[in-house]
Computed example of a mutant assay.
Amino acid sequence: MTASKQPKGESEKVVEKKMKPITALRLQRMIGLVIALFLLLAAVFLSLMVGAKPLSFSVVWEALFSSANSYDYTIIHESRIPRTIIALAVGPAFGLAGAVIQALTRNPLADPGILGVNAGAAFAVALAVGVFSITSITSYIWFALVGAFVATIAIYFIGGGAGKKSPSPEQIVLAGVAMAAALNGITTALSLINSRAFAGMLNWRIGSIARKGLEDLWPILPFLVIGLIVALAIAPALNAIAFGDDRASSLGVNVNRMRILGLIAVTLLAGGATAIAGPIVFIGLMVPHCVRWFVGPDQPWIFLYSVVVAPLILLLSDIIGRVVMSPAEVPVGIITGFVGAPILLILVRRRKASSL
Results as ranks from 00 to 15, higher is better:
4 S>P: 04
5 K>V: 04
6 Q>S: 12
6 Q>R: 13
14 V>P: 05
39 L>S: 04
44 V>M: 07
45 F>G: 02
49 M>S: 05
53 K>Q: 13
53 K>L: 06
55 L>K: 02
56 S>Y: 04
58 S>V: 10
67 S>P: 01
69 N>I: 04
71 Y>S: 12
71 Y>Q: 11
73 Y>T: 09
87 A>G: 15
88 L>C: 14
89 A>W: 04
97 A>I: 06
98 G>R: 01
98 G>A: 00
99 A>Y: 00
103 A>H: 01
114 I>R: 00
123 F>K: 04
131 V>C: 12
135 T>Y: 13
135 T>R: 13
142 W>Y: 15
144 A>M: 05
144 A>V: 04
151 A>R: 02
156 Y>W: 02
157 F>I: 07
158 I>T: 09
164 K>Y: 03
170 E>M: 08
170 E>K: 01
171 Q>Y: 11
171 Q>W: 07
173 V>K: 01
175 A>G: 11
202 L>K: 15
202 L>Q: 15
204 W>A: 07
210 A>R: 10
212 K>M: 13
230 V>K: 02
231 A>M: 07
240 A>F: 08
243 F>C: 05
245 D>H: 10
254 N>E: 13
266 V>F: 14
278 G>P: 06
300 P>A: 12
307 V>H: 10
311 P>F: 14
312 L>S: 02
315 L>N: 10
317 S>N: 09
318 D>Y: 08
321 G>N: 09
321 G>V: 08
324 V>P: 10
326 S>A: 15
341 A>P: 13
342 P>S: 09
342 P>R: 07
343 I>R: 00
345 L>D: 12
347 L>V: 03
353 A>T: 00
355 S>D: 00
